[in-house]
Each structure stands twice: as structure tokens, then as C-alpha cells.
Design a protein around this nucleic acid. Structure first.
Lengths: 222, 222
DNA sequence: TATACTAGAACGAACGTTCGTTCGACAATA
DNA sequence: TATTGTCGAACGAACGTTCGTTCTAGTATA
């Protein structure tokens, strides 16, 4: 029992034979409900300050019931990050499929990231803010997924720069992390419900990233 | 006693008459030592996870001794942020003095921010990561300083864009927060001791911010 | 002696986690 | 059709620990 070795991709868990308490849903459905409540609580209070009692209350389950679904507090955070980073990466690979131009790839990457962010704000807030809260193998595992995501993005930027080889003084790591900084900082200020539309923000960030605040490819000023 | 109403700028505290335990230094010197140890502990463990006992141990002081210098845990965090944001802002105003060109102003802002960051990494890590950890008036007060810093930067970007009015579709808030994202994310990855020099990184980020990754003002490609 | 400061013990509260138990649904037996 | 046994789901209560904070007593300086 418990969710210890569960893959984030598989929707079915082997052990419980899909027995249905009417009104409660299946085991997996209930687990996902609790996970969503935990995500909201972690996003609101921060991982350390959020207590298991608070998570249980938000999920509408007893404290002991919470431990029936999860091995412990850290496992919950791990599952949130593992799923989010995994989905983020799968979504990106899908959106990049069939695009060859590095510029269009970068635009697609930024659009995909922001769209996913807007649809899963609480999860991405937890992911961005609690990057160092996991320990041991849980940390290594999520770090590995993040690194793959980083490599994809860095590859795009590398090809982009080599295509327009106007300047050889660009450090790829700095350039990549500058972009990730802009994207990961979004959870601090951007509210898709109040601010400009997601696609608008994505386009502006992509424009800024490609051409800067004053550099325009339309008309050279010298 | 205690540091409750202390201004972050004033170096002298009125109440304790600068009595010197040989080897200990004055009251203010000792307070600054403890504050530095607290900053390092908060940066290493995070504010919530760092305990007062851990801070006391790092500062080489007893738990009761710690409470002799500070009213409580939150006061310590407040003082760290208040001083850092204040210094950051004073430093920026100083560096902007006498510069009129918005482009040079933006370059100076980025260079000033990164230089201060490299010289005070632990404090800026705490400031970037624990933006929402303060409550009540302590939160309002630090938020006010941060807002002033934001306004200065936004003003620079506004004048920059109006000078090169090539594109009217730029949301100033988005543009400003994109830059702050890049800068505030630095504490997650940049190590001034291992990576490129601070000035190198500052120049590249400024170049990217102004001209983007491929957009160059030298030659328009259409 | 008066003051500045420290040390250790202790406080109540909250923490993550575990325990023993009960409940309800299902399968096999009689 | 009754009865019995099994299993997951969920519970209230409590575990031992650590938290931020306070208190009391003591030491060294001026």
C-alpha cells in the first residue's frame, strides 16, 4: 500500500482492486484530491510552515487518514514536484515536435511553460519555491528531471545563437539561467486572472528574450 | 534595550553606552556579528527550518543571550531584509547619480545589483527567498522599500523604451518583473567564486536585456 | 553596589508520526 | 439465504521531539 514506488505516469495502482465507495471515488481519485489540497496548502503557507494537520483539514481527511495515502510529508512534496516537472517536460517535448527553427522553438518553449504555469499555478509555485526542500534520493530524482528540462532549453539557445552568430561572447549557462529566472519568478507576481493574457505575456517575454528592450530586427538604428 | 526601533542606517544605538568587553567589541559590533551568523543560518536552512538554537550556536551565544539582542525570530529576519533592501537602494541611487542616458542607467543598475549580490550573497538569498515570511507591519515596511526599488527600475525601463520608441506593445510591469526575475533568481545558481566574473555576468545580462539573444542594433536583417 | 550580559532549565504549544480500533464492503462457507 | 472472515479506509488519541520564548540565577565589569 501507500504510494512509495508509484510512477507519476501510471494512472492505475496495482494493489487496491478499484473498489468503489459511492461518493468517495476510487483510491487514485481520492489520492489526487488529497494531493491537490496539499499542493494548495504548500503554495499558501510554504512547505515548512504547512503542517500535516493543515493539509489533512484542507483535504477533508483525518490526520491518520492522510498517512494512509502517503508515507510522510516529504513524500507528498516529492510527488507534487515529480508530477509537475514530468508533465512540464512531456508537454514541452510535445510542443517542440516538428519545429526546427530555434527561434520558433524558443517561442514555443516560453509559451508552453507559461501556459502550463497558468493552468497549474499552485503546483509550479511549490516547485519554484521548494527546490531545495527535498533531501536524499527524492532530491536527486527531481533534480534529474529538472536537469533534462534545462538541457532542452540550453540546446535551443545554443542553436539559436549559432544560427545568428553575431556575438561570440555569450555564456550559454548564464543565458539559460537568465531565462529560467524570468520564468520561475513568475509565481511571485503574475496573476493570469488579473494581468495581461498568458499568450500576451509569453509573446512579450519571447520578444524581450530574442530582441531585447530596444534592439529590434525591423530597423537597425545605425 | 533590544533593537526594536533601531534605524538601519544609524550605526550607534543610544541605550547601551558602548561598554567594551575585551575581545567582544561594542554592543553594535556584537549585534552585527550575531546578525551575520543569523543571515548565514537562514540562508543555509531557510527561515522556517532554522531554529533560534541553531542561530545561537552559529553566533557563539546562548539562547538567552540571543534574546538579549533581538526581540524574537521575526525581528531578526526583518532587520536582515530592512538593512539589505535599504543598502541596495542607497547603493543604486548613488551609482545612478550623474547618469542621464537610460541605457547606461540600466547597465549601471544591473551592475550595481550584481556587485552588491556578490558581496552579500547570504543576505540577498534570504531576501529573495523569504519575501513573504514577514507579517504585519514588518512585511509592509520591507515591501515599501522594495516598491521604491521597483519604481526606480521601472522608471529607467520606461524612459529607455520611450527613447527607442520602436514598439508600443511592451507592458512595463511585465518587462520590469522579467528583469527582476533574472536578477533575483541569481541566488539559485550563481557562484561568484566559480562562475564568470561579476562584471562579465552583469554585462551579458545587460546586453541580453537590451538587445536580446539575437537582436543586434548593428544590422537590421530585413 | 549597580549594570551588562550570560547560562541553563523550563514553559506551553505545535510538530511529524504511530498506535489500536472501528466501520463498511466483499468473498467464501454453511 | 445467513454467517463468518478478510481487507482497505478512516478515525481519535497519543507518542516523543522540537519549536519560540521566558524565567531565574549567576558572573564579570565599572
Amino acid at each position: 500500500m501507500s504510494v512509495s514506488e508509484q510512477s507519476f505516469e501510471a494512472e492505475a495502482t496495482p494493489s487496491p482492486p478499484a473498489v468503489t465507495f459511492e461518493g468517495r471515488g476510487t483510491y487514485d481519485e481520492r489520492l489526487n484530491q488529497i494531493l491537490a489540497a496539499a499542493t494548495a496548502t504548500f503554495a499558501r503557507l510554504g512547505y515548512e510552515k504547512a503542517s500535516m494537520r493543515e493539509v489533512a483539514k484542507a483535504a477533508g481527511v483525518s490526520l491518520a487518514g492522510l498517512y494512509h495515502y502517503f508515507d510522510g510529508k516529504e513524500k507528498i512534496l516529492f510527488l507534487i514536484q515529480f508530477r509537475a516537472f514530468g508533465s512540464l517536460q512531456n508537454n514541452l517535448r510535445e510542443k517542440l515536435h516538428g519545429i526546427d527553427d530555434p527561434e520558433l522553438q524558443l517561442r514555443a518553449m516560453i509559451r508552453a511553460h507559461l501556459t502550463y504555469f497558468a493552468a497549474n499555478m499552485e503546483a509550479l509555485k511549490v516547485c519554484s519555491h521548494e527546490l531545495d526542500s527535498l533531501t536524499g534520493s527524492a532530491y536527486s530524482e527531481t533534480r534529474q528531471i529538472r536537469h533534462a528540462y534545462y538541457e532542452i532549453t540550453r540546446g535551443i539557445i545554443e542553436r539559436l545563437i549559432h544560427t545568428h552568430n553575431t556575438n561570440g561572447n555569450i555564456d550559454l549557462h548564464v543565458a539559460t539561467m537568465a531565462l529560467f529566472g524570468t520564468l520561475n519568478w513568475l509565481y511571485r507576481w503574475y496573476d493570469p486572472q488579473r494581468g495581461p493574457a498568458v499568450t500576451t505575456v509569453a509573446n512579450q517575454i519571447a520578444d524581450q528574450c530574442l530582441h531585447g528592450l530596444i534592439g529590434t530586427t525591423k530597423t537597425g538604428d545605425q
